[in-house]
């Protein structure tokens, strides 16, 4: 399990990285934390002809709050998010630091980055799920400049995204705080990618949900929102009954596939359970 040969290039800024992507052609790849890419290269399932190492672009490691929301630099590690829970930047975004703890393990989180996770686009990845849940904008930079893609439009299919070959993710923007949000997931072994993951974000006031968002991973090729269930939350009391009804609706609405980790029916069942659990946590915070 040794990777195939490639040429190595180090980028010192975003412009350099994007230029290298252009020059080195479409078999070139960026490497950030390497926590997904290198494993695939060791199996020779990925054989980039060139790697552009973006780890030294320290300018992309930040958590910043401004009028438009919370901005997270693409190279910010999972661990940085996890351990920034009490900072001002993350006020109202506790769900992010909680969710980070579900990602792999400590030594994975110290290396892996939020940008890499979004680019890798695993359907049960915590960041992908939360990006979809919280209507994040994925800010990407190419030769011609910067553009912003809504998370809902970013994930196209299994490990494929709206990212063009010569583009780089530079930032994830979370537009609004989510004080009543939570994520719940199930894997047989703690730290593994979830079989199914559910995340919810509730707008609650005086015991009533004015609105709510529900996102699921592991029930489709990409993380999805479940409008059929979200509509049941609107204007409903924030009670276990409401959450159960929404969870039931979500389970009925999704069309999961079957694989070695569980068939469609099982995934539906997990989706229901995990939505209920996430809702219960969301109103507890």
């Amino acid at each position: 399990m040794k990777p195939a040969p490639f040429t190595y290039h180090r980028a010192h800024d975003v412009r350099g990285a994007v230029e290298s992507l252009h020059e080195l052609g479409e078999d070139a790849k960026l490497i950030a934390g390497g926590q997904s890419l290198v494993a695939m290269m060791n199996f020779r399932l990925a054989r980039p002809s060139a790697l552009i190492d973006v780890n030294r672009i320290d300018a992309l490691r930040y958590l910043r709050r401004d009028g438009e929301g919370l901005r997270i630099g693409a190279l910010t590690t999972h661990h940085t998010v996890e351990s920034s829970g009490s900072t001002a930047a993350l006020a109202g975004f506790g769900v992010l630091s909680h969710a980070a703890r579900w990602i792999g393990h400590y030594p994975i989180r110290t290396r892996g980055t939020i940008g890499g996770s979004i680019a890798h686009a695993d359907s049960t990845a915590e960041w992908c799920l939360l990006a979809v849940l919280l209507d994040a904008q994925i800010v990407v930079r190419g030769q011609v400049g910067e553009r912003s893609v809504a998370a809902a439009d970013f994930f196209h299919g299994f490990l494929t995204t709206a990212l063009e070959p010569e583009e780089m993710i530079v930032e994830i923007l979370f537009p609004r705080p989510a004080p009543h949000a939570a994520l719940s997931e199930f894997a047989q072994r703690k730290g593994d990618f979830a079989i199914v993951a559910a995340a919810v974000d509730l707008d609650v006031e005086d015991g009533v949900c004015s609105a709510g968002r529900i996102a699921l991973g592991g029930v489709d090729a990409v993380p999805i929102r479940v409008p059929e269930a979200e509509s049941l939350l609107q204007g409903a009391p924030a009670t276990a009954e409401t959450f159960r009804a929404a969870a039931d609706a979500a389970a009925a609405a999704v069309e999961p596939g079957s694989d070695a980790h569980g068939d469609a029916d099982y995934r539906r069942g997990l989706a229901r359970t995990l939505i209920e659990r996430a809702c219960a946590q969301a109103i507890a915070v």
Binding site: M1, N42, F43, H79, P107
Partner: peptide, 26 residues
């Protein structure tokens, strides 16, 4: 050599990392 077992764990600038998922040149 795919990040699961952790037998290769070392510290890079004080922080723990899988040495099988990092290239030497990095």
């Amino acid at each position: 050599e795919h990040g699961i077992c952790g037998a290769c764990t070392v510290l890079i600038d004080g922080s723990p990392a899988r040495a099988c998922l990092t290239f030497g040149v990095q």
